[in-house]
Nucleic acid binder design. Structure first.
Lengths: 146, 146
DNA sequence: GCTTGACCTCAACTTAGCTTGAGGTTGCAC
DNA sequence: GTGCAACCTCAAGCTAAGTTGAGGTCAAGC
């Protein structure tokens, strides 16, 4: 393992755009693991840049650190992941994305029906009444939300 | 104003699916305003069920309470909103939704390119290198994210 | 060999969005 | 007219995802 492949935290921070404190925090959370110099300073693998890039992308997609942690658990720690490793991960992320887009699209469709009749506000609206009848059985704006 | 139109907090909670504590919290935040009985108990308008339903939907769309507060500010407080009031609001929500869907769809497209080559992990990948060269000028997985 | 910037730990603070608990009051049904 | 569920306030606590600060150490260039 070439010495050049080990980078200090500041470099990792500059390369990912993350704050140094955030990287230390991620290491505590176990998203990342670092070696140490004799003087106790962290040294990361170059491939951790990509690991953190993945974290940023996944966060942007609305995943919490815990979910991201689980996803990353499929990658090897302390060793540069292979192409196949990353591809598997990316594909699983893609399906999460799909699901998210579908949910929003469905919500939009429901909302469109509602705009037409103002059902968020009026007793006489079909959709609202449906929701309202449901109020006896279970509460909430379930019709639009589910 | 009919007495039947005034409901106590517990009923509002059951009808919206929210916790009583959450409703009190929202009232503190100014998302909602309540009248009081002689004995200092809150009494809400029936139309507040819809007001809160809106809050739930907007939250689901990823808006923060502050943004929701601003949106709701266009509605009358303490008076049942009209159909037009709600329609205006729903339409503005629809455009936020559109934007959100677009962002995710773009991200998905970028990610698709990446799955093909494993660019999150490999030096030789075009996308990655682009991102990497950018590393000198500005950090991060910007290529996928922006 | 010394200076200085990058690094270290640990504890406390931040914002958002609530929940929980203590201690007390109201209002409706019998 | 009394019991008790539902209500009240206020303060403290919680999770997520970090940031900030104090006080101290490391390492690389001159």
């Amino acid at each position: 393992m070439d010495k050049n492949d080990l980078i200090p935290i500041g470099v990792l921070a500059r390369r990912t755009g993350l704050a140094v404190s955030a990287i230390r925090f991620y290491e505590d959370r176990g998203l990342l693991c670092a070696m140490r110099t004799m003087g106790n300073q962290r040294r990361f693998l170059r491939s951790d840049i990509r690991r953190l890039s993945f974290v940023l992308i996944a966060q942007r997609l609305g995943l919490g650190l815990t979910e991201i942690e689980e996803a990353l658990a499929t990658l090897p720690m302390g060793r540069t992941p292979t192409l196949t490793d990353w591809q598997k991960l990316s594909r699983s992320m893609r399906s999460q994305l799909d699901a998210k887009i579908q949910l929003l699209t469905r919500t939009r469709a429901k909302l469109d029906e509602c705009i037409g009749c103002g059902c968020l506000s009026l007793q006489r609206c079909q959709l609202y009444n449906r929701d309202d009848r449901a109020g006896a059985a279970g509460p909430g704006p379930r019709y639009v939300l589910d």
